[in-house]
Write a protein that binds this DNA or RNA. Structure first.
Lengths: 143, 143
DNA sequence: GGGGGTGTTCATTTATAATTGAACTTAATG
DNA sequence: CATTAAGTTCAATTATAAATGAACACCCCC
């Protein structure tokens, strides 16, 4: 799944290992078990944390950080939308707003052509609005 | 956006060109304008067609195939879900169903551990069900 | 304030995915 | 039926993204 959504396989491996282990794991556990470099694990864990797919667990008397998977689909999806999709949609929407048909045209236009482009430019803006409204609903529906 | 969703940039370029041109374009037009190889354009158009992001237009008296962008967000999203996400979710769901906790365990388990894994395995199955229900709704909401 | 364990950073290497281009198919045309 | 234009295929190349690993910071404890 991580690959279908354009993320590295290693993320899926780390999450999968945590998911398949009924106790929290520490950094080094993951390195050993997956035979993965410390660099990859470090970056993978950071990303998984920022999207809220794992949560740190404190084990008293052990200064290592342990991790547990977040298993609520809603949280996983919400994190993906928030961190990956929304930022893209926002920068893209901002550009769409700034566009004028004249910027947009790739060739000299007939009047009909200008109308078509005006229409499409409007579409672009409504896309952005709809996406902004619907994505939050998706997380809710999955919760 | 195509890149955010894990697709090649060239797809976005082709779609963008069609979107920014208020008349249908032929294969060779795209090759010329984007200075892209025939191979890439051929594959790009094929993909865009299978996800329903462009539609062929017949121009009488011209044996070339022309293409127009599909500008309905709903159709674009539906195509992406249908061709990219759903197949993944299905194979993934099928594997989840076939899994038994014993396949799943990466180590010898306490009783508590077995419970945790049973739980997670259940989660996996509900994920699949929810995804199957919600994704079609998403297309509708965007329509 | 040195030493060992824990984790991060980032330049280099490696693996993966995308693009090219030449050879090929298909179909229309004279 | 030879010719030419339109589009496809796929092995080789190139570009991009991910993984590695060595050097570096950060405690904490004695």
């Amino acid at each position: 799944m991580t690959q279908a959504l354009g993320m590295p396989r290693s993320l899926g491996e780390i999450y999968g290992l945590l998911f398949a282990t009924p106790r929290p794991l520490a950094f080094q556990d993951i390195v050993d078990r997956l035979e993965m470099s410390k660099g990859s694990v470090s970056q993978g864990l950071r990303f998984l944390r920022t999207v809220g797919a794992i949560k740190p667990v404190v084990v008293t008397g052990d200064r290592r950080e342990f991790f547990e998977p977040v298993v609520e689909l809603r949280q996983l999806v919400a994190g993906f939308l928030r961190e990956r999709l929304n930022p893209q949609i926002e920068t893209w929407g901002a550009r769409a707003k700034a566009l004028k048909p004249t910027d947009f045209a790739l060739e000299t236009l007939s009047e009909e052509g200008r109308d078509t482009l005006d229409n499409r430019l409007e579409k672009l803006k409504t896309w952005q609005k709809r996406a902004g409204m619907v994505l939050p609903m998706v997380s809710k529906l999955l919760g």
